[in-house]
Amino acid sequence: MSGYRFDRLKVLVVDDNAHMRKLVVTILQAFGVSQIHEADSGNRAWTVLRVSNPDVIVADWVMEGMSGIELVQKIHTDPSTPNPFVPVIMLTGHTHIDHVRQARDAGVNEFIAKPVSVKTMMSQLVAVIEHHRPYVRTSAYFGPCRHRRGVDEYRGPERRADTKQQAAE
């Protein structure tokens, strides 16, 4: 017994595959989540989230039109976003480490590699609740801190941008 009041959560599930949405919704409902909104595309998700202002977003990566990654970037940077801090759990068939890095660099909070299981869904939901991360704003990025540990003390310059600029030169 963890004592979480999942019934108080409002979750937006974004996937262009209706079966996968149904699967995720089934799991979330069984967890006790009662307010679940669905969207079948990134564009539709943007419309829905601006009205519903969810607490958590579970989004697929590969979708026609706006991808899950593009949706995450829009949530973090668009001036009309209702909540730039809303945690996003990225659901994807991508399993290569490069994709995990790409998701992290886009500002995804947690990552679930399909196939989806009850255990991974629960653990990632708990992760976004318990492992609250600091946010970073630089000239090129706004979103959750991409380092999991050891960031509390850093107040220095944006070294990556400097490195990128040097590389460009």
């Binding site: 607490d55 609740i129 609250h132 970073v136 850093y154 310059p157």
Partner: peptide, 17 residues
């Protein structure tokens, strides 16, 4: 070198559930 802003927003999710 460019400035970097690091901050901790309140954990509204934890407060809610």
């Amino acid at each position: 070198q460019q400035p970097i802003e690091l901050f901790m927003p309140p954990n509204m999710l934890k407060a809610k559930v």
